[in-house]
Design a protein around this nucleic acid. Structure first.
Lengths: 341, 341
DNA sequence: GACCGTTGCGCAATCGTTTCCGGTATGCCG
DNA sequence: CGGCATACCGGAAACGATTGCGCAACGGTC
């Protein structure tokens, strides 16, 4: 089935040298002097035999596997996770590391089992990711391991990478302020205390508005899903409210808001401006395209790998900026003279 | 940093037995007789020392790593990929295997490098996945390896798992027929030959329609994206066409169609019924919720793992059914007496 | 010719398991 | 008391690399 792989010992024998020499040649180490002829001979034989090192054997000795684990509660289930995975994958591949991906489904027992399985395979380090930003309790079995938290935090001593949600809130609010909005600004989406992203975004929003001498006109309470947002928004409009600008807690909420606004005959952005968070695919699919503050998922992944592999200084919790993706859903308050025409 | 892990030899010494005995006890092998007392003693010591086997050492000897590789062109970039990953992950975890995930980005050089890296780590097998169903050329370096193709095929001798797109086409068409549609049925989305999913879906659609003595009233040509679909559909309506039912090539196309229909004042499903393919998140977010034929992504992943680990018979190319998710976007042709109210 | 630095390389142990061979008691039978 | 199962276990060689030493040969110096 699987054809024979030449071993280092075979290469050494065929080249007429010791395994030691062959090893030094193959790994390119220079702390043992090897003549050019010998070196070339070994390399030639290795190439002829199509030699590839057995990394398990190497790792057994050297204690380094060039392997890292990305373990998450719901890595694949959540739609954005792909970008995190991709960022980590790419960063790992660039550094010649391979990634084990695991999903605990939030089950502590499964989590424990997976961590042990990973440990048994001698992974060099862990990225522990959660889908929603929150405080995390680091599993006991991860104590003492090389570890970076992603999207969650657990004190200063463990490096963590999270999105700068407060900054995002400021950015979103500022986008409206810059467009000339001063009143009629409403928040859409519930402010539940367990949604850290939410509280922080709101904190940033209020800071930016406050700095401009503006305050929120009100808020529409709904779950962070299209249907809930649609219903709440429809009821809000039916009650006679007429918002001039909406800050939606995420793109899915924005979708629901769009549906209600359009059904009520309100134009975006002529009558109502909309900004949102996440910058998912949805943002470009809506009509008009949605201005959204992007979650830097790919960067979170990359950054976590960089820190894990010790290339970046770890400064406790690192907050990655959430950039504004400016599109067509924001215009100046009255009239159609918005910056996007 | 990382605390000491007890080795099997240590356990053996502390239990007063040979490593051989300890090994047999720990792996639960019965082909060497071991007294109950000895067994218990070893187990107790192992537990006290918190012993965990070093799988690298084990694998070095036994040639089995309990590790498989999922290698894909664009695993994370594409939004559905998450479900494939999740399915494989779960299936692998259930069988005590760990998954290496890799993304080649369609680059043959990177692909070659990644496969070699995986081979060097002695993975037990490969799942080679592509995001869009197509013929695949299997990389040379994968020849002779345990391998299952996912979403692509390359001849009878290599097991493959793909969605049953022809069946999906039949299902979609049948949904309209069952609702009473006989004419005014239009296709939305380009029929490009490289989109195997497309050709096969159309094949199924025409088969089902033909069997019912019905034929397509026409088609709207557009790329498989919301914006393109919106524009094409808007133009189509502007030209005076009035479709009674739409079969959209995927949910994103359906989104574009929804936008155009709603802008034209046409009601879904009162005036126009819509069915689609993929059953992405979008389908439940739209108003009305979209009837869609689901891509069984999670099952593709699971199935590939099962076949790879030899639990399922490999019968060449296995086509997984694409089930209909019936929602509110389909009703009987005229009047609002659709089955979903 | 003794000494020494440099150059070039090999021996053998090691990593933590598994596994191929045995081996030693003990009891029982005849 | 010899022989033979049976029950229980251990020695040591793998697996395929890395690595701590040590060592031979050569050339030059005094």
């Amino acid at each position: 089935m699987t054809q024979h792989r030449a071993t280092l010992t075979e290469v050494a024998r065929r080249a007429g040298v010791s395994p030691t020499t062959a090893s030094f040649v193959m790994t390119g180490r220079t702390d043992m002097r090897i003549s050019v002829e010998t070196r070339d001979r070994v390399l030639r034989v290795a190439h002829e035999l199509n030699y590839r090192p057995n990394l398990m054997a190497r790792s057994l000795r050297s204690k380094v596997t060039q392997t890292i684990a990305l373990i998450s509660d719901t890595i694949a289930t959540e739609q954005y996770a792909g970008q995190i995975v991709y960022g980590s994958l790419a960063a790992a591949a660039e550094r010649r590391h391979l990634l084990f991906i695991c999903e605990t489904e939030g089950d502590p027992v499964l989590e424990e089992r997976l961590i042990n399985d990973l440990l048994d395979r001698q992974v060099d380090g862990f990225i522990y990711a959660t889908m929603y930003t929150r405080r995390a309790r680091v599993p006991r079995s991860l104590r003492g391991q090389r570890l970076v938290l992603l999207n969650c935090a657990a004190g200063r001593e463990i490096p963590a990478v999270v999105p700068d949600e407060v900054g995002a809130g400021r950015t979103a609010a500022q986008a409206l302020i810059d467009a000339g909005h001063r009143d009629g600004i409403h928040l859409v989406g519930e402010r539940a205390p367990h949604l850290i992203a939410g509280s922080e975004r709101i904190q940033g929003i209020e800071a930016a508005l406050g700095a401009a001498g503006v305050s929120l006109a009100g808020s529409v309470d709904c779950a962070w899903w299209p249907e809930s947002a649609y219903e709440a928004m429809a009821a809000f409009l039916a009650a006679g409210h007429l918002p001039k600008a909406l800050i939606c807690m995420n793109d899915r909420v924005a979708l629901g808001a769009y549906q209600a606004l359009q059904e009520a005959g309100l134009g975006i952005p002529e009558d109502v401006s909309v900004v949102s968070f996440d910058d998912s695919d949805l943002a470009t699919w809506l009509r008009p395209q949605l201005t959204s503050v992007a979650l830097p998922h790919q960067w979170l992944g990359r950054r976590a790998v960089e820190i894990l592999l010790g290339e970046a200084e770890h400064e406790g919790v690192e907050r990655l900026p959430m950039p504004l993706r400016h599109r067509s859903s924001v215009a100046s308050p009255r009239g159609r003279s918005g910056r996007d025409g």
